[in-house]
Amino acid sequence: MPITSIAVGTPAEAVHRETLKAALAEFISTLIFVFAGEGSGMAFNKLTDDGSTTPAGLVAASLAHGFALFVAVSVSANISGGHVNPAVTFGAFLGGNISMLRGILYWIAQCLGSVAACLLLKFATGGLETSAFSLSAGVSSWNAVVLEIVMTFGLVYTVYATAVDPKKGNLGVIAPIAIGFIVGANILAGGAFDGASMNPAVSFGPAVVSWTWTHHWVYWAGPLIGAAIAALVYDGVFIGQTTHEQLPTADF
């Protein structure tokens, strides 16, 4: 089981130069992703008078997030692994692909990157609101949790299949494209119900800047549960102990 591969890490690893560089890469890539994704919704609202809630706005959000995530993963993949998402980091941790201490640094960097992106958007747009994620009418908190679990399962399963699995071969640019595609597709599927976060950091930044915390727990619980299920299924069933290759830790 993947649980046997879990590593806590050492204080030396947490302050290692390469770890800090990786955390910085996560901060920058998350900032890029959230700035483009959140900014697209703000721009569509400005151009169409709250048009982000229309079908066209949903398609625009899907494209913006898919393209931005493709870039964000690509630019940080060789430095930090291109997580850009606390749920992906959590899934990687459960599979033994990242230590707990390194993962905590990633989480901090990702959340700070999201907050920084939202603050920059608010300043650059003359104080326009960076809207926090919210539930649509008729959608309960538990409905949204299930949505987030299923969508994040698909995302993290895709990450494992295209980027983590040692049998993946030379997929090259396919991994960032596939990850961007699944996020864009999930936004089309779930965006009208709960915003389709799949990423606690993406929800955290707007919540902090707008100071709106209603149902915010949904956007942590759902993605983390979905990521855990995907990691345990893929690592336990399709990778297994005989083929699992933990990331090198010799430098630490």
Rank of each mutant, 00 (worst) to 15 (best):
H65R: 00
V75S: 01
H216L: 13
G195Y: 06
S136F: 02
L135C: 02
A25Y: 03
A87W: 09
G172S: 09
N186G: 11
A196D: 03
V139F: 10
H244N: 12
D165M: 05
A189R: 03
L112K: 04
K21C: 10
V84R: 00
A221G: 06
A87V: 02
F252Q: 10
T54D: 06
A250K: 06
I177R: 03
L224K: 01
V156H: 13
L31S: 07
I3V: 11
M100V: 14
T243D: 15
I32K: 06
E18D: 13
G180Q: 04
E26L: 07
S99C: 12
A60S: 13
S136H: 08
N199P: 11
W213D: 05
G138E: 04
L135F: 10
H83I: 08
A87Y: 07
L63F: 14
G57N: 04
I6V: 15
A250T: 06
L47S: 14
A227V: 06
G91Q: 05
P176S: 07
W217S: 03
T130L: 08
L58Y: 07
G103A: 15
A116D: 00
G172M: 10
G66Q: 02
I6Q: 02
I179C: 03
F193D: 01
L20Y: 08
S62P: 05
G236P: 14
A137D: 07
I179K: 01
G240M: 09
G37D: 04
L188N: 03
Q246Y: 03
N170R: 11
T158M: 03
T89N: 13
A25R: 02
V34M: 03
F123D: 00
S210E: 15
K168C: 00
P2F: 04
S29I: 10
S62A: 15
A12S: 08
A77D: 02
T242D: 15
S74D: 01
S40L: 11
S197L: 07
A43I: 14
S52V: 09
F27L: 15
V88Q: 07
G195C: 05
F193M: 12
F153L: 08
I32Q: 11
V159G: 08
A36Q: 01
A201W: 13
C118I: 00
S134T: 12
V59E: 01
L63V: 15
V15D: 00
V145N: 08
F252W: 06
S80Y: 12
A132T: 05
A12D: 15
T89K: 09
T48R: 14
L24N: 00
W107N: 05
N45H: 06
A189V: 04
